[in-house]
Design a protein around this nucleic acid. Structure first.
Length: 579
DNA sequence: GCCGTTTTCGGCCCGACTGTTTTCAGTCG
């Protein structure tokens, strides 16, 4: 059984933890961590890359780690890891992830108190045994207990989906920006980069008078308690348990601060190295000339980039996935925006599990400026959604044609389906039915936990059917708690490329599927993408921007997305696909 | 362990906060 990318990344992270506990130099530890992160963000399978000798094209993978990956692929294990596990109790790496416990403390907890896992740490802290150690007091003990609580909560609840955090953050920020002292404001952190899930909500406000703004946040209705407050920052916990960190920045330092707190950390490190090459040391407070020590304040992010000699890099792609090199060479992508979109090719009505009629959905789409839509109710085998029998599918078409006529050309309404790829891989409607439809989506909703070969075979079968135009939410993940299906994405992309089919970026914030790195790979291979809301009610049509954010993270330009095409071009493309 | 128009060795971002110190190590983002 070949190890997956995820499993290999997890082993590298464990190795990093154990090396850190052993007191290994920090840069060696970081090499393993960076490699683990890079592997998680790699859209191709390591085994396929190993076969063609391309492992070293992954950033942070050099000769040594390439060999270790090859060893894992060949043997299913890593001897070095096994040796480390014999030396360091594996449970000890768990307590390394408690906030307030680093490698030094973890090691001392083990050696001096015999604590080897999270449970033992909790027990000892509750019994007040930690404060006996030199350098540890009651406060540290308390902080560790809170850290354990936080970690346990994260395990049960998972991270916060973007679609939950962003509206909360934006509404809090709007309230703070009503203050006369607030000059400028932004969400920051992974939320501004639009990662699919985030930890804490980071807010930045520019002002010369922090206190009133800090007090305002603490007094808002959905704030449960103030966790901590200082002269320029504060942390609060919302009623829903989410933590919000607010930082107030002097307006003349805004650019540097916003850049710093947007990250990612990897982007910042790389960017600062470049700044140093230009004799500039960059921190969240601004630049400093290395030779004279003179401060150079930057009020806008544009100036931050300009001082290091590059154009503005949009926040969504600041992950150190090559954006800095691209900026230096003036080949940043012209990222897609919401304004580029004028079609939605995936939505449901009361014919299956939607809440509005075809007519109501058409009007809702028209009100949002869409020029054409496809009604794609579920197919017959998905009984729980009231999926359409062939007879109902044909009646469905009649009503759609009627609504399309009624709309008088203000918006075009087409007839499609979101057809099940059933558990045995057959498609839910025969070809002679599919060829009557304007547009066919095929999706997996069942059997997502099947073994890799089986689930991949099913999706390839759909891709290879000439009547299928789009694979809906290809990986089947649900954010934050359902993992994607174990698909061989290299095979999926190759088949998609060969068949000319499109792949979806499902805009629903619980899906965001394809995720950014896969979207980017698809574009690189010349596979068309389609960004759709999968709306079951009118309001869900307003979630389109999450799909746009995801596409932007994947370096997607408008031309790669069929929803940006003219009606004529879309129809011509769909015609060519077997009908 | 990675990486390279100041390359194959010697670097590897930067500052703030915390608690327990007696001048700073450890941790965090």
């Amino acid at each position: 059984m070949t190890l997956s990318n995820r499993e290999i990344a997890n082993i590298f992270d464990s190795v990093a933890d154990m090396l850190e506990l052993k007191g290994e130099i920090v840069h060696r530890v970081l090499s393993y961590r960076h490699a683990a992160d890079a592997i998680r963000e790699t859209p191709r399978s390591l085994s396929a890359m190993a076969e063609v000798g391309e492992l070293k094209t992954i950033p942070s993978i050099g000769k040594t780690l390439e060999e270790k990956i090859q060893e894992m692929l060949a043997t299913g294990t890593l001897q070095m890891y096994e040796n480390l596990k014999a030396e360091i109790p594996p449970g000890l790496t768990e307590i390394l992830h408690v906030s307030g416990v680093g490698p030094k403390r973890a090691l001392r907890l083990w050696k001096e108190l015999g604590i080897a896992d999270l449970g033992q740490l909790k027990e000892a802290a509750e019994a007040g045994k930690l404060r006996a150690m030199s350098g540890m007091g009651a406060k540290t003990e308390q902080r560790i207990l809170e850290g354990i609580e936080q970690l346990e909560k994260l395990k049960t609840e998972g991270r916060t989906p973007l679609g939950v955090a962003l509206p909360i953050a934006q509404s809090l920020l709007d309230l703070l920006m009503e203050m006369p002292q607030a000059v400028n404001g932004s969400v920051a952190g992974s939320l501004r980069r639009a990662r699919p899930t985030i930890g804490d909500i980071d807010l930045l406000v520019a002002s010369d008078d922090p206190q009133p703004i800090i007090e305002r946040l603490g007094s808002l209705a959905n704030v449960a308690r103030v966790l901590w407050t200082g002269p320029e920052k504060t942390s609060v916990e919302l009623l829903n348990g989410k933590q919000v960190d607010l930082l107030i920045i002097p307006p003349d330092r805004w650019g540097a601060a916003l850049h710093h707190f947007t990250g990612s950390q990897a982007h910042n490190i790389h960017f600062r190295e470049l700044a140093l090459e230009k004799g500039l040391s960059l921190s969240e407070r601004g630049f400093k000339r290395v030779d004279t020590g003179e401060e150079v304040l930057v009020a806008t992010e544009e100036e931050v980039f300009a001082l290091v000699g590059m154009p503005y890099i949009p926040p969504e792609i600041r992950e150190d996935w090559g954006e800095i090199e691209a900026a230096l060479e003036n080949r940043l992508p012209d990222l897609i925006t919401l304004d580029d979109m004028h079609a939605d090719l995936h939505m449901h009505t009361t014919w299956s599990d939607g809440t509005l009629s075809i007519r109501e959905m058409a009007n809702a789409a028209l009100a949002r400026g869409r020029k054409f839509i496809v009604i794609t109710d579920h197919s017959r085998s998905l009984g729980i959604t009231n999926g359409l029998s062939i007879e109902r599918l044909l009646a469905h078409q009649q009503e759609i044609r009627q609504v399309d006529r009624e709309m008088g050309g203000k918006i075009r309404v087409f007839h499609g389906t979101e057809m099940e790829i059933t558990a045995d891989g057959t498609l839910d409607y025969p070809d002679e039915v599919l060829e009557k439809l304007d547009f066919v989506i095929a999706s997996l909703h069942t059997g997502l936990r099947q073994p890799r070969e089986q689930v991949t075979m099913r999706i390839l079968n759909a891709i290879n059917n000439p009547h299928v135009d789009l694979i809906g939410h290809p990986r089947g993940q649900l954010i934050p708690n359902r993992e994607p299906a174990d698909l061989d994405m290299d095979a999926v992309f190759q088949a998609a490329k060969a068949s000319g089919i499109a792949l979806e970026i499902n805009a629903n914030p619980h899906r965001l599927d394809l995720e950014a790195q896969y979207a980017r790979r698809a574009v690189e291979m010349g596979i068309p993408l389609s960004i759709n809301t999968d709306a079951h009610r009118a309001g869900e049509m307003d979630l389109l921007h999450y799909g746009i954010l995801t596409a932007r993270r994947g370096w997607v330009e408008p031309a790669s997305v069929i929803n940006t095409w003219s009606l004529e071009r879309f129809l011509e493309w769909a015609q060519k696909r077997g009908r």
